[in-house]
Design a protein around this nucleic acid. Structure first.
Length: 914
RNA sequence: GGGUAGUUAGCUCAGCGGAAGAGCACUCGCCUCACACGCGAGUGGCCGCAGGUUCAAAUCCUGCACUACCCACCA
C-alpha cells in the first residue's frame, strides 16, 4: 500500500499554515447583517503587561470553542479582541523600571511619565494577542481595541458625564482604602483580606473624675494602638451592665491628654475584648460610622505616606509601625498597658502590591450603586441573564445586595483622567492655586471646555485623578462597538446596521470566577444604566487552573506551566483538548503533563484513523460524490446510530457550556467505537473482493469520519482542518466548495433513525468477542492462531450469528469457524463462557490449562451467584414487585434468568472438568 | 463569623435514583498490512463518616469531619 502521509501527526508543521490561511480568507471577520442572527463575544481583555498563562489559554480556548461552534451553526459570529490598560498594575511595572534607574515618577513629572508609559505599552504592547493567534483563536483582528484608545476613551468620558449628570457620580470626603505604597485610593473589592496572627492590646483609659465606687478607668482592647492618638470617644454596647455608670463620663486620653466622652453605640459587640472600644473615626471604617452617628470630630493622625501627622504630637513624622511601638512603650511606662493577647484577625492588603491598607479620610469620586445594583439583581432574578453553572447566581446576588458606593477615583497617572474641570475664577491669575476652591461649580464634559460657562473665565484645569481601571472595563461590551458616537460606525455594512446595535447585547461572557464581582457585576450595572439592556445574555463561569498539587499557578510559587511550551511540545490541539476536557463548569482543574500526553495521543489517533480511511479510498475505485446508497449491514447501521446519538449529545453539551462533556463524548465515540470496532469490522469488506460492499464500507467510514471531524473542529481546529483539506476532495469534486471545514454546516442528525435493535445486536456480538478474547488471553493462545467458536443460542436469536455477525466474530476474535446451534455438545478440551443467554465453547486441544480454566469458571460462577442473589432479593420483595416500574421488573426478571442460566451452564462445565 | 464547591480505583476525574466507569499507572500477551503517541486481556473501589427518605441511594435530604475558594468594619 502506498503511504504518503506521515505515521505521526506533526502539529508544528501545520498550525501556522492554517492560521495564516484562515486570516487570508477573512474567516474571522464579521459584518452586521440584519438577515442573520448575531452571536457575539467580547474577550475579557488581558492586561497589556500580560503574557499568555494557562488561565488565559483556558479562557480563550473555551471562547473559541463556542464561537466556532456557533459559526458552524450559521450564526453571524463575532469575537472582539483587545487589551486593558491595567491601571495600577501597569503603572507599577513601569515605576519599577524607573526605580532601577534611581528615579521616581515624580522626578519625571506627569507628562514625561505618561510618555514613558505609552512607550512601554507600545513595546510590550500586545504580545499576548499574538500569543492568542498561536492558540488558534478566531478573533476578528480588524476590531482590536485597547481600553485607552480613542474609541474606548471617548466612551469612558461619555459614560462619566452621563452618570454625573444623572446624579450618580459625586465627590465626597469619606473614609477610603488607601495604599501607602501605590499612593492611591482603592475600591473595597481591591482590598484583599488575609487572616494573620496579630496582638490584642488592652489599654487603661483613666476617667477624669473617678466614681464613688472606686472605678477610675475603663479598659479598651485594640489591634492598632497607634491610632489611639486620634481617638475621640470610647464606645460601649447600649445597655451593657458593666458600663452603665460610666456612660456619659469623660475620659482623659492618655499621652494626648484630650478629654473624650464615653458613648453607647450598637456597633459594639459586648462579647468581644472588654466590651469597650476606642473610637478613631479617621482611621477605621466602623469608627467612622460611629463618629458620624454621634457627630464626633475626626482627627487624622496618619498621613498618605503611612507616617504620623502633626496631630500625633511627639510622634509626628515617624512611620505608623514605629509609632505603634513607641506608643506601646509610653503606655507601658505609665502602667496603662494591661494585657497583650494573641489575636487572629483579617488584615486588608492592596491587591496589586500587598501593602497593608490604611483607611484614610480623603476626598474622592464615588458612584452611587444602590439603584444600579437593584437593577443588576433584577435581570438575573428574572432570568434575563443566565449563569452557567447556576450556582454562581447566589454569590452574585448577595454581593450586589451588600455593595456600597464605588470609589472610582485613583491618585495615579496611568488611566483615564477624570473629565471634570475646575474654573480658576474670573480674572484669576494665570494659574489657579487650588482649582477646587473656585466659586464656580465643577464642569463635567466629554471634551475640554474652552471657558467656564458660569463666569467665562478661561483658566481651566482638569481634575488630576484618573478613573479606576475597572470603570473602563465595565463599559467594554459596548465601548468596543463605538458607543455612543459610532452608531453608524466604520464597520457598518451597506445593508446592515450599526455595530453597537447589532452586536449588543453580546451572547455570552466567558470568564473565571475570580472577577465575577470586580468585572462581571459592574458590566451588568453599566450596561443597564447606559445602554438600557443587559451586556450579555449568558455568563459562562469556568474554574481556575491549578497545578498537579492543587495549588493556584503563580509566578511566585514557580509552578507555572507555560502554555507556549505545551503547544511546542504536544501541539496546540492537544493543549486545547486537554483544557476543554478539564473544564467542568464551575470547577477548578488540576493539570499535569499526563493530560497533555493523553490529548496528544488522541490527536494522533484521529490522524491515523483518517490516514487509514484515505489510504483505502485511494486504493479503490472511489469517486467523489459517492454516497451511502449501497446495502448497509449491521455494523454500518450500528455506527451510524451511534454517530446520530453523538451529534445530538455533543450539540446539547456545547450549547449548555458543558465543553468537558462534549470533549469526552467525542473521545469516547471516536476511539472506543469508531476505531476499536467499526474500522476493524470495515476491514473485512475493505480487504474483500466485492467492489460494491467495499464502497459501502468506505462511504460509511467517510461519512462518519467527516461528521466527527466537524464536531471536533471547535475544540481541535488545526488537525481537523488539516485532515479535512485532504478528505473533502474525496467527498466533493466541485472546485468551488467552501474554503474551510468551519464553513461547512454543523452536523444534524435525525434521532428517529437511531436503530436500537442494531445497537443491542452489536453489543451482544461485542460481548462475545470480548469473551473469546479473554479466553484466548488467559489460555495463552498464540495471537496468530485461529480458533473455533461453538455457540448455543436460542433459535429466535440465531440469525445474529449467521452472515455478517459470524464474519465479525471471525475477524475480531480470530476464529476460522463458527458453529451455531441450540444445544451443541461441549467439545473435549474446551474453554467456555456464558454471555447473556448465549453459551460459547472454544475448543483448545493441547492448549488448555484445565486447572486454570476451572479457576476462571469458579470465579465466574461465584459472580453469577452473587448476581442471582441480588436479583432474587428484589424479585421476592413484594414492595419491589408492587412499586417499581414494570420496565424495571422486566429487566430484573431478565437479569435473573440470565444469571440462572449462567450458573447452570458454568456449573455443568466445572463438573465436567473434575 | 457567613457562603459556595469538593471528598468515587495508586493518580487525575466522569457518573448524580434502578447491575461501580474512563484516562494514566500497574500485571500479562502482542511491532496483527491506520496508529507502539499503538492493539488485546487483566488486577484494583465499605463511592469521606453517621443518620434519614425510598421497593431501590455513590446518586435525594439532614447532620458531622476534613479540603479548597469566596465574602465579612468584632475593635
Amino acid at each position: 500500500m502506498e503511504i504518503d502521509i506521515p505515521k505521526v501527526y506533526e502539529p508544528q508543521k501545520v498550525e501556522d499554515k492554517w492560521y495564516d490561511y484562515w486570516l487570508k480568507h477573512n474567516l474571522f471577520s464579521s459584518t452586521p447583517r440584519r438577515s442573520r442572527q448575531p452571536f457575539s463575544i467580547v474577550i475579557p481583555p488581558p492586561n497589556v503587561t500580560g503574557i499568555l498563562h494557562m488561565g488565559h489559554a483556558l479562557n480563550n480556548t473555551l471562547q473559541d470553542v463556542i464561537i466556532r461552534f456557533r459559526g458552524m451553526q450559521n450564526y453571524n459570529t463575532l469575537w472582539v479582541p483587545g487589551t486593558d490598560h491595567g491601571g495600577i498594575a501597569t503603572q507599577n511595572v513601569v515605576e519599577k523600571l524607573l526605580l532601577a534607574e534611581g528615579k521616581t515618577r515624580h522626578d519625571l513629572g506627569r507628562e514625561k511619565f505618561l510618555e514613558r508609559m505609552w512607550k512601554w505599552r507600545k513595546e510590550s504592547g500586545d504580545i499576548i494577542l499574538s500569543q492568542l493567534k498561536r492558540l488558534g483563536c478566531s478573533l476578528d483582528w480588524s476590531r482590536t481595541r485597547f481600553t485607552m484608545d480613542d474609541v474606548c476613551s471617548r466612551a469612558v468620558r461619555h459614560a462619566f458625564v452621563e452618570l454625573y449628570n444623572r446624579g450618580l457620580i459625586y465627590r465626597g470626603k469619606r473614609l477610603v482604602n488607601w495604599c501607602p505604597r501605590c499612593q492611591t485610593a482603592l475600591s473595597d473589592i481591591e482590598v484583599e483580606h488575609e487572616e494573620e496572627e496579630g496582638k490584642l492590646w488592652h489599654i487603661k483609659y483613666p476617667l477624669k473624675k473617678p466614681k464613688k465606687g472606686g472605678v477610675s478607668f475603663i479598659v479598651v482592647a485594640t489591634t492598632r494602638p497607634e491610632t489611639m492618638l486620634g481617638d475621640v470617644a470610647v464606645a460601649v454596647s447600649p445597655g451593657d451592665k458593666r458600663y452603665e455608670n460610666i456612660v456619659g463620663e469623660v475620659i482623659v486620653l492618655p499621652i494626648v491628654n484630650r478629654e473624650i466622652p464615653v458613648i453607647e453605640d450598637e456597633a459594639v459587640d459586648p462579647a468581644f475584648g472588654t466590651g469597650a472600644v476606642k473610637v478613631t473615626p479617621a482611621h477605621d471604617p466602623t469608627d467612622f460610622d460611629i463618629g458620624a452617628r454621634h457627630k464626633l470630630e475626626s482627627i487624622v493622625v496618619i498621613d498618605t505616606q503611612g507616617k504620623m501627622t502633626k496631630d500625633a504630637g511627639s510622634y509626628a513624622g515617624i512611620d505608623r509601625y514605629a509609632a505603634r511601638k513607641a506608643v506601646l512603650g509610653d503606655l507601658a511606662l505609665h502602667g496603662l498597658l494591661l494585657e497583650t493577647t494573641d489575636h487572629r484577625h483579617a488584615v486588608g492588603r492592596c491587591y496589586r502590591c500587598n501593602t497593608v491598607i490604611e483607611p484614610l479620610i480623603s476626598e474622592q469620586w464615588f458612584l452611587k450603586v444602590e439603584d444600579m445594583s437593584r437593577r443588576a439583581m433584577e435581570v438575573v432574578e428574572q432570568g434575563k441573564i443566565k449563569f452557567y453553572p447556576d450556582s454562581w447566581k447566589g454569590p452574585y446576588l448577595s454581593w450586589l445586595e451588600k455593595l456600597k458606593d464605588w470609589c472610582i477615583s485613583r491618585q495615579i497617572w496611568w488611566g483615564h483622567r477624570i473629565p471634570v474641570y475646575y474654573c480658576g475664577g474670573k480674572g484669576a491669575p494665570k494659574k489657579a492655586k487650588d482649582k477646587r476652591d473656585s466659586s464656580c461649580p465643577p464642569i463635567a464634559a466629554v471634551d475640554r471646555p474652552t471657558s467656564c460657562p458660569e463666569c467665562g473665565g478661561t483658566v481651566i484645569e482638569q481634575d488630576t485623578d484618573v478613573l479606576d481601571t475597572w470603570f473602563s472595563s465595565a463599559l467594554w461590551p459596548f465601548s468596543v462597538f463605538g458607543w455612543p458616537v459610532d452608531k453608524t460606525g466604520a464597520n457598518q455594512a451597506a445593508a446592515g446596521a450599526a455595530d453597537s446595535d447589532y452586536y449588543y447585547p453580546t451572547a455570552v461572557l466567558v470568564t473565571g470566577h475570580e472577577i465575577l464581582y470586580l468585572w462581571v457585576a459592574r458590566m451588568v450595572q453599566m450596561g443597564l444604566q447606559l445602554r438600557g439592556d443587559v451586556p450579555f445574555r449568558e455568563v459562562f463561569i469556568h474554574g481556575i487552573v491549578r497545578d498537579k498539587n492543587g495549588k493556584k499557578m503563580s509566578k511566585s510559587l514557580g509552578n507555572i506551566i507555560d502554555p507556549l511550551e505545551i503547544m511546542n511540545k504536544y501541539g496546540t490541539d492537544a493543549l486545547r483538548f486537554s483544557l476543554a476536557q478539564s473544564a467542568a463548569p464551575g470547577r477548578d482543574m488540576q493539570l499535569s503533563d499526563d493530560s497533555f500526553i493523553s490529548a496528544r495521543n488522541f490527536a494522533n489517533k484521529i490522524w491515523n484513523a483518517s490516514r487509514f480511511v484515505m489510504m483505502n479510498i485511494k486504493n479503490s475505485d472511489w469517486q467523489p460524490g459517492f454516497l451511502a446508497v449501497w446495502p448497509l449491514e449491521l455494523a454500518d447501521v450500528w455506527i451510524l446510530s451511534q454517530y446520530r446519538l453523538l451529534v445530538k449529545d455533543v450539540t446539547d453539551a456545547l450549547a449548555g457550556y458543558n465543553i468537558d462533556t462534549a470533549a469526552r463524548l467525542l473521545y469516547e465515540f471516536f476511539w472506543s467505537k469508531y476505531c476499536d470496532w467499526y474500522i476493524e469490522i470495515a476491514k473485512i469488506r475493505l480487504n474483500g473482493q466485492d467492489p460494491e460492499t467495499r464502497r459501502a464500507a468506505l462511504s460509511v467510514l467517510l461519512e462518519v469520519l467527516a461528521g466527527t471531524l466537524r464536531l471536533l473542529h471547535p475544540i481541535m481546529p488545526f488537525i481537523t482542518e488539516e485532515i479535512w483539506d485532504s478528505l473533502v476532495k474525496f467527498k466533493e469534486s466541485s472546485e468551488d466548495r467552501p474554503v474551510s471545514i468551519m464553513k461547512y454546516p454543523w452536523p444534524e442528525a435525525d434521532q428517529s433513525k437511531v436503530d436500537t435493535v442494531a445497537i443491542s445486536k452489536m453489543e451482544l456480538l461485542q460481548e462475545i468477542v470480548t469473551a473469546v478474547r479473554t479466553i484466548r488471553s488467559e489460555m495463552n493462545v498464540p495471537p496468530g492462531k485461529s480458533v473455533s467458536i461453538h455457540l448455543n443460542v436460542n433459535p429466535l436469536e440465531q440469525q445474529v450469528f449467521s452472515g455478517e455477525g459470524a464474519g465479525y466474530l471471525k475477524q475480531l476474535a480470530k476464529a476460522q469457524e463458527i458453529l451455531v446451534g441450540e444445544s451443541l455438545p461441549r467439545p473435549a478440551q474446551s474453554a467456555m463462557a456464558v454471555v447473556s443467554n448465549v453459551q460459547l465453547f472454544v475448543p483448545l486441544a493441547g492448549l488448555i490449562d484445565l486447572e486454570k480454566e476451572k479457576q476462571r469458571l469458579l470465579k465466574e460462577h461465584k459472580n453469577a451467584g452473587m448476581e442471582l442473589e441480588r436479583c432474587k432479593k428484589n424479585m421476592e420483595n413484594a414492595d419491589f414487585m408492587k412499586r417499581a416500574p414494570q420496565a424495571e421488573v422486566d429487566k430484573m426478571r431478565q437479569r435473573m434468568a440470565d444469571a440462572q442460566l449462567k450458573i447452570e451452564r458454568i456449573g455443568e462445565n466445572i463438573k465436567f472438568l473434575e
